[in-house]
Amino acid sequence: MPVTIYDVAREAGVSMATVSRVVNQNPNVKPTTRKKVLDAIERLGYRPNAVARGLASKKTTTVGVVIPDISGSFFAEVARGIEDIANMYNYNIILCNSDEQKEKELRLINTLLEKQVDGLLFMGNEVTEDHKEAFGTASVPIVLTATYDDENRWPSVNIDNKQAAVDATTLLLDEGHRHVALITGPLTHPVNGFPRYQGYREALEAKGVPFDEKYVRVGDYRYQSGMEAMRELLALDEPPTAVFAASDEMAVGVIHAVQDAGKRVPEDISVIGFDNINISSMVRPLLSTIAQPMYDIGAVSMRLLTKLMNKEEVEDPHVILQHELVLRQSTKTQAGE
């Protein structure tokens, strides 16, 4: 049978109320009495019932996190930032993998809310009307991490994806390239895929370079889709001389496809990626990329959520973090130039 608070009280020779005060770190307990209770807890191996404590306090000190793909380097680093700040503020997290499936996302949101989490962090490619309906029924704060809703009803933490794409494309154009290709994510994704496509087109227009749809390919942010897209681009009558890939994994696939074709990066084709995950500094040549503050996206999201849960003042519920252009060896313009 599990050890109960009654067993601890009897062992220590105190009331159950005194045990409760010790467990909940109430300062109004004499040091000698506190020691007796703690010694009894250790001898008996008592573990407080978190569910019962949550019912009493109306708080579970638990945060739900819905994440698209925990195996992806980007989301893994975001999750690390979330967990570090959660630990700092004594919250536990329930991490749920949605596999980027809308129905699964909705099911996980409802399940976490049913489990009485104190707050929810949501990461996904799109906040649909169904998502909004689910969020609208929540009685706890919700923060959108690396995503947002088109009405800005819920607090969010992001970077400026369109401007980041402008910066990446402009770098390639400034190298003198006029046939610059884009390999992005699905254009139906309003957070990443479409804004990066918009930024690419905006940079071309600013430099007076005509947009040519044949240089645009849609992948899924993964290595294989980058390689396959680059093989298609290399088969064109007039292949691109530079490529902006909207993820580092796809950019590495691009580099390998170029090398398989007997060409060199960046001498024949310049390549720039997006995210600055670890693989960008492992591939050869080293990958130039747009650095997202992945850890900070998670950490700032969790800190914002703690403020909302504790009803602290929030100056701006919609946070835009800074990205950075990291120049390495895969572009003709390199660090220090």
Rank of each mutant, 00 (worst) to 15 (best):
R43G: 04
T60M: 10
P68M: 02
A146R: 11
E126L: 10
T137E: 10
E126K: 15
N92R: 14
N92T: 15
E126I: 13
I93V: 15
L113K: 07
Q101S: 05
L120K: 01
T60F: 08
T32Q: 13
P31W: 04
A86Y: 00
F75D: 04
S57N: 14
P31S: 08
G64D: 01
N90V: 11
P68I: 03
A56F: 06
G72R: 10
A52D: 10
V51D: 00
I109Y: 06
S98W: 01
F135N: 05
V63I: 15
P68T: 04
T145M: 13
G45R: 02
A79L: 12
E105W: 07
I94Q: 05
S98H: 05
K102Y: 08
P68K: 01
R43V: 11
K102R: 09
T111L: 10
G124K: 06
R107M: 08
Q101V: 12
M88C: 07
L55V: 09
L44P: 09
N87I: 08
L55P: 01
Y89F: 15
R53L: 09
I93C: 13
G81K: 05
T33E: 03
E133K: 15
I94V: 14
G64T: 01
A40Q: 07
I70M: 06
E83P: 09
A76D: 03
V117S: 02
G54N: 03
D99Y: 12
L44F: 14
L120C: 07
N97H: 13
F135A: 04
F75T: 08
T137K: 15
N87E: 13
A79C: 10
N87S: 14
F74G: 05
T32G: 00
T145Y: 12
A56R: 11
T60D: 02
N125T: 10
D69A: 09
I67P: 00
Q116I: 02
C96P: 02
E103M: 04
V143Q: 04
N125C: 00
K102H: 13
Q101K: 14
S98C: 00
G72L: 02
M88E: 15
K132M: 13
A76G: 15
R80L: 12
V66W: 03
E77W: 04
P48S: 14
G54C: 05
N87Y: 14
G81D: 05
V63C: 06
P31N: 02
K36C: 07
V37F: 06
Y46D: 08
T137I: 05
E42V: 05
E133Q: 14
E77D: 12
L112H: 03
V63T: 10
R47K: 15
G72C: 03
L112C: 03
S73A: 15
I85M: 08
I70V: 15
I109T: 11
D118V: 07
L144K: 09
S139A: 06
M88G: 08
R80S: 14
